[in-house]
Simulated assay, not measured.
Amino acid sequence: MMGTQPEIVFIKPKHGRKVPIPQYMRDTQEYFGEYLPDEGLQVQKTLYWIRRKQDDDIEEVIAFDNPPITQEMANTAKNQAKKAKEETQE
């Protein structure tokens, strides 16, 4: 049985809003901090984010100048920093 792919959206907090990252994202590899960063974040469209949009806390961004920060990109940056640190220690 094939499942459907989750919808991925790029979101930003509305000006002046601090939108908390939900606990389930903090407890997994999707952790990015306590609050949604001002530059935005690529996330799975869940009921939490739908409610934040209905409450006018966030906005979905369709076209953006900077590539979104994804967990894969964050891990790559961490791995590169770790590799550089190991090379300097040798």
Rank of each mutant, 00 (worst) to 15 (best):
T4P: 08
T4M: 08
T4F: 10
T4A: 10
T4Q: 10
Q5S: 12
Q5N: 12
P6T: 00
P6F: 00
E7I: 13
I8M: 13
I8C: 11
I8H: 13
I8W: 09
V9L: 10
F10A: 06
F10Y: 13
F10G: 11
F10M: 11
I11H: 14
K12N: 04
K12V: 15
K12G: 04
P13F: 05
P13A: 06
P13C: 13
P13M: 08
P13Y: 00
K14W: 03
K14T: 08
K14H: 04
K14A: 07
K14R: 11
H15G: 07
H15K: 11
H15T: 12
H15S: 09
H15N: 05
H15E: 08
H15R: 09
H15Y: 06
G16A: 09
G16R: 05
G16H: 04
R17C: 15
K18G: 13
K18D: 12
K18V: 13
K18F: 15
K18S: 15
V19M: 09
V19G: 06
V19S: 06
V19L: 08
V19W: 03
V19E: 04
V19H: 02
V19R: 06
P20A: 02
P20Y: 02
P20C: 04
I21F: 01
I21V: 14
I21E: 00
I21D: 00
I21Y: 08
P22G: 01
P22D: 01
P22N: 04
P22M: 02
Q23W: 01
Q23N: 02
Q23T: 06
Q23H: 03
Q23R: 02
Y24M: 11
Y24W: 15
Y24G: 00
M25A: 15
R26H: 09
D27F: 10
D27R: 11
D27Q: 11
T28F: 04
Q29P: 03
Q29Y: 06
Q29V: 05
Q29F: 06
Q29S: 08
E30M: 01
E30I: 01
E30H: 03
Y31H: 07
Y31E: 05
Y31K: 06
Y31R: 07
Y31P: 04
Y31F: 10
F32P: 03
F32S: 11
G33K: 09
G33V: 00
G33R: 05
